[in-house]
Amino acid sequence: MIASILTYIFTAITIAPIVYILITKNVIRAVFSLAFSFLGLSGLYVLMNAEFMAVVQLLIYAGGIIVLMVFGLMLTKTTLNKGFITQHRSLFFGSLVSFLLFISLAALATRSGFKVGFTEHAGDPVAQIGQLFLTDFIIAFEVVAFLLLVALVGASYLAKKSGE
């Protein structure tokens, strides 16, 4: 019962900033709304027994990606437009495409009738995740670690080279 109420509250915290991002023209407000949306998603992950994912969401999304976006925003501020105001374009077709996609996928989701059985996870989930990283997912783990290294070095190189 309490879990259901918390789920609805966190859903509201997730959805309300997204609706605000859809209607606002201010980029900096949109970025900070996105942070609130990530907080709501993190709460939902806790309710789904995925505490590790909730912490990862808070650290990387709300902590890292939001800060990166704010820095990118501050560094690309033009004096032409006032502040961080942007404009809308093709409002009708954008809304139409996403609305039609939503309708069709929602029809698909209602018809499929998902059924889930309750499964008790044996042991500590975080310890299990660590074991899976080093056994079943070792190749993906190494590849993604290398990719992250290359991506961050490449990003700093790209950002530095333009300063010359």
Partner: peptide, 25 residues
């Protein structure tokens, strides 16, 4: 449905907004 809404809102934001940061969002 919740994730469907978030996904379609993301597509709408990418199409509608005229800023690269909004596309990233």
């Amino acid at each position: 449905f919740l994730s469907l809404f978030i996904f379609c809102a993301g597509i709408a934001i990418i199409i509608i907004k005229r800023s690269a940061i909004f596309v990233l969002i």
